[in-house]
Every structure is written in structure tokens, then in C-alpha cells.
Design a protein around this nucleic acid. Structure first.
Length: 513
DNA sequence: GTTCGGATCTC
DNA sequence: ATCGTAG
DNA sequence: CTACGATGAGATCCGAAC
């Protein structure tokens, strides 16, 4: 198949908001793919490449060669070229990479160039990605969407499933099942503003619910097959070599085969969790580096679910049954603290205990739900305490895409009583309704002092109430601290900038946790 | 050898 | 990661 | 209820420039 066909399909998909029309266009293109191109075409229709990383980003694609007059690129050839580009390493690799990129783009038409750029940077914005392509695979192969999704959950990816569906139909899809050593997409949680909200979402405690500590580390899925251990992250990246401590724990479990879900984090000498930054740092340096450098604490795993034990596939079993196996197999010290209760009061106390222990919050779980891999199901509801501050807007960035024409991303400052000025702490674009965007665009145009292509600086007069999850140490911002997951709650016209929170108040969150 | 920018991963 | 919008 | 899109901070790794 020619790349031009994919590009034309992408244009059709982007031009309509109707999901049915998007799926129909994607299915038509899929049906035209040659058997040996199905993986590439499926990936490209979802706007993704098959390479996990190419080593080329938006910056390298700012300047492109003259586009070709007519299309000539084939889909398979593009994939081969990108594979070569992704493999360059060592001195001179950047030059070789950029020469190869120029060569590839020089053979693309203007439309193909812009599609390629979008696919490489992940900013195609055609309003369809994996989920709609799965629908299209089902339509093109004459199978149900549920069959495709189920297979994709076991495969941890859509591409092999597309190949199976289009070449072998429903029978081929039925071959996919949970296997040790083959990562599945992790189940995700929805969220609630507080414990009562979570309680209500899960039926108000008519049946007992589980309340798990929510640990602030990185998600790990552990596979054990005899002595062999595989650890993957939430995005299914293999991190086995970076977590030798966790590998040892998993290898020692008294089962031949096991698949576990959990969280790994760094502990201090006092047994309390270290800040997330430390966990991230320790898990991203390799095993040798970590062993060579004195560490304040090892990376410790805490498991909260068990998907497979020896020959029992427990994905569809009720949570209570999975947890029973988990408790039999994994020592308490390596399990996430959990309370089973039908009493909201007890659950609130458990949440308070989690916070006091330095954890992030809790996840409330139904005891009878199956493990819904890859879905943000309603069977798990997370609750994290929210902090708020009244900050001052220092500047605004121009929006793009859907927010083009609006002033969107605001720069946030805290008051500095010593200088009488303001210290920047971060930015946010979250929590703004279209109505707020319209209002703030007008407001900040009024307050504008200087403007460039991207940023409009404003007089520091507008106070905004910001919600956030916590404070991190920062080398980027002058105050030495930054907000984690800041979002706008509301603009405050009842407060002046002189009444905004101070940088000292912000810093006090660092020690208070 | 040190510093800086880009890419890619975590949350 | 969070959040708002649209289907 | 689900999927999508617009974007946040920090850390490391690698290569290039100084």
C-alpha cells in the first residue's frame, strides 16, 4: 500500500467528528492492505509508528526539504527507513539520522510530509487512535469489537491482534490468552474527589469494599516463570535489569508461574516512602549504576493483585478470589496495605492513616470485579487529598489545536514578601472550561505588557485558585519548588495580588507532605 | 572535562 | 499524570 | 461511559558544542 493512501484516509478521518464515519474510513483502508503490510498499515492508521523510539522529535523536523511533486513512497518502505533511522547510535549518529530524515522527507509530497511529521512527533490529531482502529479491525475482519479488545488486552498491543483478525478471524483471536512472560495492559482506576465520592461510586458500601493504600511509586507488572523474571512498567516497557531488588523478591515467591500487579518505590531508613523523584531516579538508572552508588534505600515492591498462578488464569475471577491467591503467595511485607470494610467511617480512618504514613492516598475497589486490563474501569476508584493555593497569573501562552485563538496555558506565581514581587512555580492549562478560556483570553489581553509569538506577559494582578497534588523540589523554577499536577479551580476577583499566598506558604507543603 | 539540548520515559 | 468536551 | 486532545514537572541518556 502506498503511504498516500494512509495519508488520504487520515485526512478523511480528521475531517469528520462522526466516529462511525472514522471507523468506516479506517476499515476500508485496512481491507485494502496486503497481508504482509497489515501491522504497518494498522499502526499508521492509528497515527503511530511501529518503532518505540526513533530518536527524532519535533525540533529535528522544523525545517524540511522541498516536498516531492507526486507520491511514490510505499508503507513498507517507510517503515524500513524509520527502522534504519532508529538504529543509528554513537558519534556522528545525529548527523546520519538527520541526513536520512531529509532523504525520506524529500521523497514525500507535502501531505505525506505533514503526516510523517505528525506520526513521528505523536501529534497527528486525527481524532482517532488505538480504540477506533480496534473498531475498524473488527469491521474489516468481520468479528466483534469485544473479541478484538479482549485479544488486544492479552497481547498488550493492537498490531498482532489486527494481523490475527484479518488473516484468521475469530478463531485466531481466540488463541490470545494470558501467558507468563507476555505483559498485559494494566487495569487503571477512575478517580473521586474524596472518600465519600468513591464510596458512592462503588455502591455505598452495600457490600464490603477493599481500600488499598495508594503508593507514590512506579507501576510494575511482574512475571515469574521458574527462575526467569520479567518486570514491566505501566506502558509495558521492560525494566527487569533496573530493579534487581524486585527481581529477587519475585523469584523467591513459592509458585512456579505467577503474574503480579503492584507498585515499586524507594523507602527511607525510617521505612517511610521517599519523594517520587527519588523513586523515579533510582528506577531509571541501571542496576550497575544503582549498585555502585550508595543508596539511601532499596526499591521495594508492593503487590496488590495477582492475575495468574501456575495454571490458573485469574483475570476473570472476582477480585476477592485473586486476592486470596495473592495473600497465600506474597508475604504481608510485600503487599499493599488493604482494609476490607463496609463502613465508610473505617475507610476514612484508613485513608487518614495512609496519609499519615506518607502515602499518596487510597484506591477503593470492588471485591467482585474481574481484572479489566487496559481499561479505566469503575471497579477501582482512587482518592488523593487535594491542596489549594491562591496564586497570581504572571503570563499566558497561546493555545494550539482545539485551543487556537485562545490564551490557554497560564504561568503561576507566589508572592515573595521580601522583594514584593512574585516567584514562578509552574504552569497549568487544566481545569479550564471553554467559557473560562474565553473569559481569560479577554482578561489577559487587557493586562498584557509584552507579547511574543508564544507568550503574553501580563501585569501580576489576577488571582487564581489552584488545586494541586503536592510540591516537588525544582531546579527549573527560581523558588526551588514546583507544583505537581496543578489545575485551575476558579478565578478569584475577591482577592488582590497582595493577598495571594506567599512562597513561604508553598514551601511549607514540602515538609508537611 | 563540562555544559547544554533533544528525546523519551515516569508520574 | 489531570481535566473538559463530544459522541 | 469512553475516547480524545491539550498540556504539566522531573530524571536520565546520548551526542554535540565549547
Amino acid at each position: 500500500m502506498r503511504l498516500a493512501e494512509v495519508v488520504a484516509t487520515s485526512a478523511v478521518v480528521a475531517s469528520t467528528r462522526s466516529r462511525k464515519a472514522k471507523v468506516a474510513a479506517l476499515a476500508q483502508a485496512l481491507a485494502r492492505a496486503e497481508p504482509d503490510e497489515i501491522e504497518t498499515v494498522t499502526a499508521y492508521l492509528s497515527g503511530a509508528l511501529r518503532q518505540r523510539r526513533v530518536g527524532v522529535g519535533w525540533r529535528s523536523l522544523m525545517e524540511l526539504p522541498e516536498p516531492a511533486g507526486s507520491p511514490s513512497l510505499g508503507v513498507a518502505e517507510v517503515h524500513d527507513r524509520l527502522e534504519e533511522i532508529s538504529r543509528f547510535t554513537g558519534a556522528g549518529s545525529q548527523a546520519a539520522r538527520s541526513a536520512a530524515v531529509a532523504e525520506l522527507f524529500g521523497r514525500a509530497t507535502a501531505e505525506e510530509q505533514s503526516w510523517l511529521r505528525g506520526a513521528i512527533t505523536g501529534e497527528l490529531r486525527q481524532g482517532a487512535s488505538d480504540a477506533l482502529v480496534q473498531d475498524a479491525v473488527a469491521a474489516a475482519a468481520g468479528v466483534t469489537v469485544a473479541q478484538v479488545r479482549r485479544a488486544a488486552m492479552f497481547a498488550g498491543a493492537t498490531l498482532p491482534v489486527a494481523v490475527a483478525a484479518l488473516s484468521g478471524g475469530a478463531a485466531a483471536l481466540a488463541e490470545f490468552r494470558l501467558q507468563v512472560g507476555r505483559p498485559v495492559l494494566p487495569m487503571l482506576a477512575s478517580s473521586a474527589p474524596d472518600l465519600d465520592g468513591a464510596w458512592e461510586k462503588l455502591g455505598g458500601g452495600r457490600a464490603p469494599l477493599a481500600v488499598d493504600h495508594k503508593l507514590d511509586g512506579i507501576r510494575i507488572q511482574a512475571h515469574k516463570d521458574g527462575d526467569r523474571v520479567l518486570l514491566v512498567t505501566r506502558s509495558l516497557e521492560d525494566i527487569t535489569d533496573r530493579l534487581p531488588d524486585v527481581v529477587a523478591v519475585v523469584r523467591a515467591l513459592p509458585a512456579e508461574r505467577v503474574v503480579l500487579d503492584g507498585e515499586a518505590l524507594a523507602l527511607g531508613p525510617d521505612g517511610r516512602p521517599r519523594p517520587f523523584q527519588e523513586t523515579a531516579s533510582l528506577t531509571s538508572t541501571g542496576a550497575t549504576a544503582a549498585a555502585a552508588v550508595p543508596r539511601p534505600g532499596a526499591i521495594t515492591p508492593y503487590f496488590f493483585d495477582l492475575l495468574l498462578r501456575d495454571d490458573a488464569d485469574l483475570l476473570d475471577a472476582p477480585a476477592s478470589e485473586r486476592w486470596r491467591h495473592l495473600e497465600e503467595l506474597v508475604p504481608t511485607a510485600q503487599r499493599v496495605p488493604r482494609l476490607l470494610t463496609d463502613d465508610a467511617e473505617a475507610a476514612r480512618a484508613f485513608l487518614a492513616g495512609a496519609i499519615a504514613a506518607g502515602q499518596e492516598g487510597v484506591v477503593v475497589k470492588s471485591t467482585d470485579a474481574p481484572y479489566a486490563a487496559g481499561r479505566r474501569g469503575s471497579a477501582w476508584v482512587k482518592v488523593k487529598p487535594v491542596h489549594t493555593l491562591d496564586l497570581v497569573v504572571l503570563a499566558v501562552e497561546r493555545g494550539s489545536g482545539r485551543r487556537r485563538g485562545w490564551l490557554s496555558n497560564i504561568h503561576l506565581g507566589a508572592r515573595d514578601p521580601e522583594t514584593g514581587g512574585f516567584v514562578m512555580l509552574g504552569k497549568t492549562f487544566k481545569g479550564m472550561t471553554d467559557e473560562m478560556l474565553a473569559w481569560q483570553t479577554e482578561r489577559f489581553e487587557e493586562l498584557a505588557t509584552e507579547r511574543d509569538d508564544w507568550v503574553v506577559h501580563v501585569r501580576p494582578e489576577q488571582v487564581v485558585e489552584i488545586a494541586f497534588d503536592g510540591i516537588q523540589r525544582s531546579t527549573r523554577y527560581p523558588g526551588g519548588v514546583a507544583l505537581r499536577f496543578a489545575r485551575v479551580l476558579r478565578y478569584r476577583d475577591d482577592k488582590t495580588a497582595g493577598e495571594a499566598d506567599t512562597i513561604d506558604t508553598v514551601r511549607s507543603f514540602l515538609t508537611a507532605g
